[in-house]
Nucleic acid binder design. Structure first.
Length: 730
DNA sequence: AGCACGCCGACT
DNA sequence: GTCGGCGTGCTC
């Protein structure tokens, strides 16, 4: 005998941290997770049922009815909903906002949505007869007929002719064409024999137990064969009838990984969820996953919420990457959510990296995560690159290039191999300076300097995008001798062209790769051996495989050596390790030259010895000494206003609310004073922040739960605020 | 977030 | 006298 509910608890996409009760005849447990239409204020909104009840705290007479139920089957499975509830609580973000963040945009729209399987049009035998004679002026029809000699999607037909849909309709009625479901065509990539596993790889594949929801770190240098371990684990999971979730930081490096997955599992239903697929396709794939019709999901951070009823394994590639952290709205860490999801559904989670985050490394030391190490490069002939420093205090460097680096590039050119020059600055020069009066080009809207982009002859702000023509003379004193100081990717490219006029140079940075497809084109050129020297920012450091690359030059990494951010040295070390790993992968020895004015800094010593573990341990010691994460847990309240005083004043109020309403919770939580943000001004908005810190994650959570909802009740005239749990930039 | 209600300045 | 500024309060 089931309980009769009459009240549906529904969340709506509004920034209000609560659910709303509605009357609904015969709501049942099975309705939880369905989308509905409800009257809200003076409008109708979409909501999601999160609970059912027989009573309400709200006056019964004032309850409104659910107008319509949109789904036959819930779009969220119970375990996904449980995960979203956890996120809402942990990140102190309204459940409605959390649920609607996870929902594909197309499923957020009211318009009815046909969850039709993808199909294609094809000529029938009678159609071939009837249309075979088409000739002359019916150009559009001829083109369509020719296209349909084999199955072709409506999208492509629409691109061929604007009349496509009416022609299709006519021909389909005449029986000349028929629609056929698109069967997943087996990938034509070479399947080939699986590579032999090294003993290390085999041991790890063996050690990951699908029935044990243990988190583990797969620590392996670049080229040590992490991907092969992933593939074997996926194979294991598929054989057990499980679904696999593979998270990647960005779509940038997905193509290579995606190809390897497709080639290895040509018959598995694999879906790749990234920012470039259409809304309709994302919604369709989401529902297919939800029905258990996809066995491998490869996607960026948002994919961590995709409903997968048979989820049995989660892989997180390049787990140290900050792209797993969403920096607006629901400020979640997909890595953290994935670990929680693994725990909830009893699936193991594997965090792969050559440079694990200190947080993860810490967990392996404390025994909470297992540590699996791949210590050797998988291709036996590939050895670790040799790393050397160039002391820029003693060597003359012109336009950023030391003579050592120049001759190393020359030698590499002579061997017809590729070089990569890494510099963490876009543009031509990061500072424009007047010798006469000391003026520097600064952004009006941000507390940042303007960067010179010389081709466009413009000064550009890298924080707000604001640009202006580069001045010919100092705007303050009229001095014509204003100097670009420092080196960016463009200036480096210019110098290289001077030194190596016949070399084929390719610059890879956000400016050069702005246009869609340019990154793919660049990768193709690199792979085809059409590039001698690569110049670029961290885009180049991430997980790419450049087989002919034997020299890596780090032009200037000094800016992050003594930065204010306590995570800067961790990031720099990871970046240097990653970019060094690009050198010498296919049996050719690699060489890395790092230019620095601080060669005695311990980070370089660790880098030269390829000693991640040692450096990580010393960084952890520093963190422990200073009581920084992962030895302490933080939450950061940010406020943004037209004037900094307003932001500061609002934060003071927020702080006061904490002190007066939940003093008990503050026994274990340190509440700091509001301070202006490091970047106090961005795009004309001024920002301040308030930090909370505790040695106990649970105590911090208790405090936040008792306090954060009060923030919604604070008068917030012109203030934009957000609360971030486990912030990565403090 | 939207959108109403509500009370003070310059305008057809 | 009104149109409209955005402060504040509410949405089951």
């Amino acid at each position: 005998m089931s309980i009769k509910f009459q009240i549906a608890r529904i969340v709506i996409d509004v920034p209000i941290p609560k659910a709303f009760d509605y009357v609904m005849e015969e709501v049942k447990q099975a309705d939880i997770g369905k989308r509905v239409i409800v009257p809200f204020g003076r409008h109708e909104r979409m909501g999601v049922i999160v609970d059912c009840a027989s009573q309400s705290d709200y006056p019964l007479a004032k309850l409104k009815p659910v107008l319509r139920v949109l789904d036959e089957e819930p779009v969220f499975t119970p375990d996904t909903l449980a995960l979203l509830k956890f996120c809402s609580q942990y990140y102190q973000f309204p459940l409605g906002g959390t649920i609607f963040t996870a929902l594909p945009a197309r499923l957020r729209q009211l318009a009815p949505w046909a969850d039709e399987a993808p199909y294609a049009w094809q000529l029938t035998p009678s159609g071939k007869d009837a249309l075979g004679g088409l000739s002359g002026r019916a150009k559009a029809q001829i083109a369509l007929r020719d296209a349909m000699s084999e199955p072709v999607t409506p999208q492509i037909l629409n691109a061929i002719s604007r009349q496509a849909s009416s022609v299709i309709k006519k021909w389909a009625e005449a029986g000349w064409i028929e629609s056929v479901p698109i069967t997943r065509v087996p990938c034509d990539a070479q399947i080939g024999p699986k590579p032999y596993l090294t003993e290390e790889q085999a041991r790890i594949v063996e050690a990951v137990d699908l029935s044990d929801p243990q988190a583990s770190v797969l620590f392996g240098v670049t080229g040590s064969g992490k991907t092969e371990v992933y593939l074997r684990l996926v194979e294991k999971a598929l054989a057990a009838g499980k679904q696999v979730l593979v998270l990647v930081p960005e779509i940038n490096l997905t193509p290579q990984l995606l190809l390897r997955f497709k080639a290895r599992f040509p018959h598995a239903s694999l879906t790749s969820l990234h920012s470039e697929i259409s809304d309709a396709e994302r919604a369709r794939e989401w529902m297919a996953c939800r029905r258990g019709e996809r066995s491998i999901v490869l996607g960026t951070r948002l994919s961590v919420f995709v409903p997968l009823p048979a989820l049995g394994l989660i892989l997180i590639d390049e787990e140290h990457d900050n792209a797993y952290k969403q920096q607006d709205g629901l400020r979640y860490s997909a890595k953290h959510v994935a670990l929680m999801r693994g725990k909830l559904v009893g699936a193991p989670v594997l965090l792969g990296s050559a440079t694990p985050s200190l947080e993860s490394w810490f967990q392996t030391l404390s025994g909470k995560y297992r540590l699996h190490t791949l210590s050797q490069r998988a291709v036996a002939s590939a050895v670790m690159p040799t790393i050397a420093l160039v002391d820029t205090r003693r060597r003359y460097t012109e336009d950023g290039l030391s003579s050592e680096l120049i001759s190393a590039i020359q030698a590499t050119l002579d061997r017809k191999e590729q070089s990569l020059l890494f510099i963490n600055r876009r543009g031509y020069a990061p500072v424009i300076f007047c010798d006469a009066c000391g003026w520097q080009a600064g952004c009006d809207r941000c507390s940042a300097r303007l960067v010179l982009h010389r081709q466009q002859k413009r000064l550009v702000c890298h924080h707000c995008g604001w640009g202006q023509p580069a001045p010919l003379a100092c705007p303050d004193c009229g001095n014509q001798d204003i100097k670009p100081i420092g080196v960016g990717t463009q200036r480096l490219e210019d110098s290289l062209e001077k030194y190596f006029p016949t070399a084929r140079i390719l610059r890879i940075d956000r400016d050069a790769m702005r246009h869609k497809g340019s990154w793919a084109a660049a990768q193709a050129r690199i792979a085809a051996g059409e590039v001698d020297i690569l110049v670029g920012t961290q885009m180049l450091a991430k997980g790419h495989d450049f087989p002919d690359l034997t020299l890596v030059g780090v032009v200037n990494a000094d800016a992050s050596l003594y930065a204010a951010d306590f995570r800067a040295s961790e990031r720099l070390f990871a970046q240097l390790m990653q970019v060094s790993g690009r050198a010498g992968r296919a049996g050719k020895p690699g060489q890395v030259l790092v230019q620095t004015a601080f060669p005695e800094h311990p980070v370089f010593d660790a880098l030269i010895r390829h000693d991640y573990a040692g450096y990580a341990t010393s960084l952890l010691q520093e963190r422990a000494d200073c009581a920084f994460p992962p030895y302490t847990f933080q939450a950061l309240l940010r406020a943004e206003a037209p004037r900094i005083e307003m932001a500061m004043q609002w934060l003071h109020q927020a702080r006061q609310t904490a002190l007066s309403t939940v003093p008990a919770h503050l026994a274990e939580v340190t509440c700091f004073d509001p301070v202006p943000a490091l970047m106090a001004r961005i795009d004309g908005k001024e920002r301040a922040q308030l930090l909370f810190q505790s040695d106990s994650r649970a105590a911090l959570q208790r405090f936040l739960s008792g306090w954060s909802y009060l923030l919604y009740e604070l008068p917030s005239n012109g203030i934009h605020w957000s609360l971030e749990v486990d912030p990565i930039e403090v």
